[in-house]
């Protein structure tokens, strides 16, 4: 047990180190001066230039520089934004929770709708209900996310006016920033009509969540369906039937667990798709998340912000992937406990 945890920890650290090395190399790869891309400060004169180079050891050996870079990263000094001049750690901490909130809501929908529908259609495989569900999910899977989001905006915001067009919450609500997760912040805030703020935030959440969740739900339905069908054809299901167990007992005790175990790692892959889609949709809905922030950084050639944004998002993805894999390893009895760790 501790050995597995240790192995995952090593894997995590090594991956992070590789990511850090990549982001460090960006300092030299971006078409700007290394001092500028590293710190985000454009030196105004030679003396400041000299001072910055000395402060960040930019004249010394590249390994020393990397070591220095790492220690600055862990100390929380991520540089400042080239455009706004704000510390990047602060900006990312503002933007990242919004994305996590969006993706988590979408993931919730994916799991709550995708898995039961997939199970249903797997159990009724090749029936009319199955064909209906399957064709709907294939259609949804083929719809581009950005197009779907625009159609949603056109229909529900502009045509019918049911749901708000953009943003996280109406600007009339002045919600102090505490955790970055809007719903928690609303609950923590005082001097606020909480129920009104919550329902407003909820209405804002619906369209962006749906536009990213639908595609992932569609693929989740198909993955679950396939897995259920595969398990139903296994000899141990025949054996369970010949024991005289009822279909319900067989489903709960034997089918569900064996079908869901192989789905978990696939779910980890879904999360990365989800986050990518979230970044696209954020731009369309002006959702103040990391995707929107990164796109702004690209437009403005904010090199230091790009470097840190890349690192932050990829760290998040690696963390989630490894956590899900570890979880899967812990609950799956058929995986050898000392099999080497891989993602």
């Amino acid at each position: 047990m501790t050995r597995i945890l240790f192995r995952y920890f090593v894997l995590f650290t090594l991956t992070l180190l590789a990511l850090c090395a990549l982001s460090f190399s960006l300092i030299y790869l971006f078409p700007a001066e290394p001092v500028t891309t590293l710190t985000g400060i454009t030196p105004q004169n030679l003396i400041q230039h000299e001072a910055l180079i000395n402060q960040y050891h930019l004249n010394s050996n590249i390994l020393v520089q990397f070591g220095d870079y790492l220690s600055e990263l862990f100390a929380g000094n991520w540089g400042v934004s080239l455009i706004s001049g704000q510390p990047l750690s602060k900006e990312i901490m503002l933007a990242l929770p919004a994305t996590i909130e969006l993706s988590a809501c979408a993931m919730f929908i994916v799991v709550v709708i995708g898995i039961p529908l997939g199970c249903y259609s797997g159990l009724r495989a090749y029936s009319n209900a199955d064909f209906t569900i399957n064709s709907i999910s294939v259609t949804l899977y083929s719809v581009p996310v950005f197009w779907l989001a625009v159609i949603f905006i056109l229909t529900f915001s502009l045509q019918f006016g049911w749901l708000p067009l953009s943003g996280r919450v109406n600007l009339l609500f002045d919600i102090p920033h505490q955790t970055g997760f809007l719903f928690i912040d609303i609950l923590l805030a005082d001097n606020l009509d909480k129920s009104a703020a919550l329902s407003d935030a909820f209405l804002h959440l619906i369209l962006p969540t749906l536009s990213i969740a639908l595609m992932s739900t569609a693929s989740m339905i198909r993955i679950t369906r396939r897995s259920i069908i595969d398990v139903l054809n296994k000899p141990f299901i025949i054996a369970a039937k010949s024991k005289g167990l009822s279909s319900r007992q067989i489903f709960v005790r034997h089918v569900l667990r064996n079908a869901l175990l192989p789905i978990l790692p696939l779910m980890a892959m879904q999360i990365t798709t989800l986050i990518t889609n979230a970044m696209i949709v954020e731009t369309l809905f002006s959702w103040p998340g990391i995707g929107n922030w990164l796109i702004q950084a690209i437009y403005q050639r904010d090199y230091s912000a790009l470097r840190m944004g890349m690192l932050a998002v990829s760290t998040l993805v690696v963390m989630i992937t490894i956590a899900i894999d570890l979880f899967n390893r812990l609950i799956d009895p058929s995986r050898e406990k000392f099999e080497s760790v891989t993602i």
Binding site: P235, F236, I238, A239, R253, H254, R257, D332
Partner: peptide
Amino acid sequence: LRKDIGVVFQHAIASLDPSV
């Protein structure tokens, strides 16, 4: 099947649920 007939299948290991 539950009460009166017991069945032993040919591939024993494959006929056992791997997660239980």
